[in-house]
Design a protein around this nucleic acid. Structure first.
Length: 611
RNA sequence: GGCGCGUUCGUCUAGGGGCCUAGGACGCCGCCCUCUCACGGCGGUAACGCGGGUUCGAAUCCCGCACGCGCUACCA
C-alpha cells in the first residue's frame, strides 16, 4: 500500500527531493536525525517536529521498515505530513531564499533539535521583591477583618518575612463616623489568630493629624492644591455635563477667583475644600508587580479633594503622606485601590517624595463573581473562626487565593509559605473564594493533628462557643472522650454537634432517621433485636469485641452491611450520620447502649402493634 | 458614560511559541475498603470567551469584539 503511494508520488514530500524507500530498521528517520518511534508519526506534534527538521534540511528523506504494522496508516500519515508541512517548508525556503530565515524560525528549529540551551528564553519572568521590604497593612476599622483584607495582610506579612523586611500595621481611621475601637480590636485579634504578627504599630492615622496638616500646608505653599468653593450642585452639574458629553466625569474647581469674589464667598459662610491641582496634560505610570505597567492619563483624573472643608485630611492624602513618611517601600493592596494610586503618587511627588513600588493584588470574589462581602456568608476571619476552622487551614486557603506555588501543593506550613511566597506568582485575575475547598482542607488538617492535641483544640472550641456550658457538668469529659471518634469525620469543628450531639441528649430519634427505620418495621426490629442480643451479654465492651460480635451477627443474618448497621446506628444515636458505630457503642458503655436499644425497640413495637 | 483591570474544566489553578492528546487540586459521578453515613484508595466527567493577524507551528505574541469586575464621594 505504502509502495503504491510511493509509486504514485503522493508521498513525495513537498517536492523537495525527499524520497521514500522501504528499508528495515524500525525507526522513522528524517534527514540524519532520528526522530521518534514510527507510531508517533500519528502524533500531530511529530508532524511539527518533522516539519521543523524539513524546514532546516530542505531535504526530507524518510526511511521506512518493511512489513511495519499498518503500512497504510503510515502512508496516510506521511501524506498528511507532506501536505501539512509543504507550506511550512515553502515558508522557510522563501525566507531562506531571501536570505533571512528569522529568529523565530531559528529558535523553533533549535528547539526541535533539542538543543534547549541554544533556545531563547522568551519573555522575561515577572519580577519578585528581593530587597528587605518595608510593607504595611492598613485596614480601616469599620467592621471585622474580611477575607479579602486578611489575604492582603497575609501577602504583606509574607513579603516582609520572606525578604527580611518589616511589617507595619496602620489603622486608617480617618473616617470618624464609621471607625470604632471595637472594630480595631477585632481586626488585631483576627490577625493574631491567623498568626500574622506585626513589627510596628498599630499606628492610628487619626493620631497623625499634625503630619497631615503640615503636608496640606506644604502643598498649599507649593501651589499644588487650591481652595475650591463649588457647591454640591455645581459639582453634580459638572459631572452630569461631562457624562452627557461622554467625557470622563471629572471635577475641576475654579482656580482664578478674584479677591472680591473670595470675600463674597466667605461672607456667605462657605468653607472651601482643598483640591489637588492636577496637571491635566500629564500621565502617571504605575510599574505594578502584578499587572505590569498601568497608565493613567491625568485628563481623566479629577481635582480630587485632599482636605475637607473642616480641614481634615482625606484618605488619599493621609495614605500618601503616611506611606511616604513611614518609609514604606512596597505598597501591596487590593486592586480596588489602583485608581487611587496615581493620585497618591501625585501627592507624594508634590511633597518631594519618591513614591514606593506597588503591587495591586486581585480581588476575592463571592460565588456570584462580585467582590466577597457579608452577603456571601462567612466572609470574615471571625466567622471562619467561629465556624470551627483551624488558623492554618484558613491561612492556606487565603494564600492559595490568587497565588500558587506550583501545580499541586495545597498544604503549607507557615514557614513554607514564607519561604515559597513570591509576588511574581500572584495571579492577575480575581478568584472566587471556595468555601467547600476550605472545609476539605480543614478536615485534612484536623485529621493530621495528633489525638491529644486534637482533643484540646476541640474542647477549647466547644468551650469558646459556649457549647459545653450549655450541656452542663461532665460535658467536657464526654467531648474529650469522643474526640478520636469524631476526628476522622469532621470537616470543621462546627460539625461536631451533627456527629456527636447525641452523646449529650437523652435518647431520641430524629425524624429522618425514624423514617428510615420505619420503612420496614419488621426488618428493623429484627436486626436491632439481633444487635441487642449481641451487646447485651458482652463482657468486654471494646471497639474490637463489638466489631467481632456485630460482624458475626451480620454474617449470620446474611444482610448487606448497610442494611444491618444502619439500624444499629439509629437505635443507638437516633441520628443518620454520627460517630462510627463501634466507637459510639464503646463510648456510652453497655448499660446506656442497651437502654437506648430497648427504647428504640419499644417505640418500634408500639408502631407495629397499632399497624 | 469615562478610566482601569481581567477572561484555561462548576471552582482554585499549571502553562511564558513546538515538551499540551491542555496537567494538578476541590466538587461531582462510579468503583473499592462487605465498619453503614464518613474517612481513605482507585477511576471517570469537565476548560483555553469570540473573530482576525503574526508564525512552518498559538492556550501562549499582536489587534478588534464580547463578557465580567473594580473605581468614578468633603468613604477608605
Amino acid at each position: 500500500m505504502l509502495d503504491q503511494a510511493l509509486d504514485r508520488g503522493a508521498v513525495d514530500v513537498a517536492g523537495l527531493g525527499g524520497r521514500l524507500a522501504g528499508r528495515s530498521g524500525g525507526d522513522l528517520l528524517v534527514g540524519r536525525a532520528e526522530v521518534d518511534q514510527i507510531e508517533t508519526v500519528a502524533h500531530k506534534r511529530a508532524h511539527a517536529l518533522v516539519g521543523g527538521l524539513a524546514a532546516e534540511a530542505l531535504d526530507l528523506r524518510v526511511l521506512v521498515v518493511d512489513g511495519l504494522p499498518g503500512a497504510r496508516v503510515v502512508g496516510e500519515h506521511l501524506q498528511a505530513l507532506a501536505a501539512d508541512r509543504r507550506a511550512a517548508v515553502d515558508g522557510v525556503a522563501d525566507a531562506a531564499a531571501a536570505g533571512d530565515v528569522g529568529a523565530e524560525t531559528h529558535r523553533a528549529i533549535l528547539r526541535a533539535r533539542r538543543y534547549p540551551e541554544w533556545v531563547g528564553k522568551g519573555k522575561p519572568k515577572r519580577r519578585g521583591i528581593d530587597v528587605p521590604a518595608r510593607v504595611r497593612f492598613a485596614p480601616s476599622p469599620t467592621g471585622s477583618l474580611h477575607v479579602g483584607g486578611a489575604r492582603t495582610a497575609l501577602f504583606n506579612w509574607l513579603i516582609a518575612r520572606n525578604t527580611g523586611g518589616t511589617f507595619v500595621l496602620r489603622v486608617e481611621d480617618t473616617d470618624r463616623e464609621r471607625s470604632t475601637p471595637e472594630s480595631e480590636a477585632e481586626i488585631l485579634r483576627a490577625l493574631t489568630w491567623l498568626g500574622l504578627d506585626w513589627d510596628e504599630g498599630p499606628l492610628r492615622q487619626s493620631e497623625r493629624g499634625q503630619a497631615h496638616q503640615a503636608a496640606v500646608e506644604r502643598l498649599r505653599q507649593e501651589g499644588a492644591i487650591y481652595a475650591a468653593w463649588e457647591t454640591e450642585e455645581e459639582l453634580e452639574a459638572q459631572r452630569a455635563a461631562a457624562r452627557a458629553d461622554k467625557r470622563a466625569p471629572v471635577v475641576r474647581g475654579r482656580r482664578d477667583h478674584t479677591e472680591d469674589e473670595l470675600d463674597a464667598l466667605r461672607a456667605e459662610g462657605r468653607e472651601p475644600v482643598w483640591r489637588f491641582a492636577v496637571d491635566t496634560a500629564g500621565r502617571t505610570e504605575i510599574d505594578d508587580y502584578v499587572r505590569g505597567t498601568v497608565t493613567f492619563e491625568h485628563a481623566a483624573i479629577e481635582d480630587f479633594v485632599v482636605a475637607r472643608s473642616d480641614g481634615s485630611p482625606t484618605y488619599n492624602l493621609a495614605a500618601a503622606v503616611d506611606d511616604a513618611e513611614m518609609g514604606i517601600t512596597h505598597v501591596v493592596r487590593g486592586e480596588d485601590h489602583i485608581s487611587n494610586t496615581p493620585k497618591q503618587m501625585m501627592i507624594m511627588r508634590a511633597l518631594g517624595h519618591e513614591p514606593p513600588e506597588y503591587a495591586h493584588i486581585p480581588l476575592i470574589l463571592g460565588p456570584d463573581k462580585k467582590r466577597l462581602s457579608k452577603r456571601h456568608g462567612a466572609a470574615s476571619v471571625e466567622e471562619l473562626e467561629s465556624a470551627g476552622f483551624l488558623p492554618i487551614a484558613a491561612l492556606n486557603a487565603l494564600a492559595l487565593c490568587g497565588w500558587s506555588y506550583d501545580d499541586k501543593t495545597t498544604m503549607f506550613t507557615p514557614e513554607e509559605l514564607v519561604e515559597k511566597f513570591s509576588i511574581a506568582r500572584v495571579s492577575k485575575s480575581p478568584a472566587v473564594f471556595d468555601m467547600k475547598r476550605l472545609e476539605v482542607l480543614n478536615g485534612r488538617y484536623l485529621r493530621t493533628t495528633p489525638d491529644d492535641e486534637f482533643a484540646d483544640i476541640l474542647v477549647a472550641y466547644l468551650t469558646d462557643t459556649g457549647y459545653l456550658a450549655e450541656r452542663g457538668d461532665g460535658a467536657e469529659e464526654i467531648a474529650r472522650r469522643s474526640a478520636p471518634a469524631v476526628k476522622r469525620k469532621l470537616g470543621t469543628l462546627g460539625d461536631y454537634d451533627g456527629l456527636a450531639g447525641w452523646l449529650f441528649r437523652p435518647h431520641d430519634i430524629e425524624p429522618e432517621a425514624w423514617e428510615v427505620v420505619t420503612k420496614d418495621v419488621k426488618h428493623s426490629v429484627q436486626v436491632i433485636g439481633a444487635g441487642l442480643g449481641r451487646i447485651e451479654t458482652l463482657e468486654e465492651f471494646t471497639v474490637e469485641r463489638l466489631r467481632e460480635e456485630l460482624s458475626d451477627q451480620l454474617h449470620i443474618l446474611g444482610e448487606a452491611a448497610r442494611d444491618f448497621l444502619e439500624p444499629q446506628r439509629i437505635a443507638l444515636t437516633g441520628q443518620l450520620v454520627s460517630t462510627g458505630i463501634y466507637e459510639s457503642l464503646e463510648m456510652v458503655g453497655r448499660d446506656e447502649a442497651v437502654s437506648r436499644y430497648r427504647s428504640t425497640l419499644a417505640r418500634l413495637a408500639e408502631l407495629w402493634q397499632s399497624a
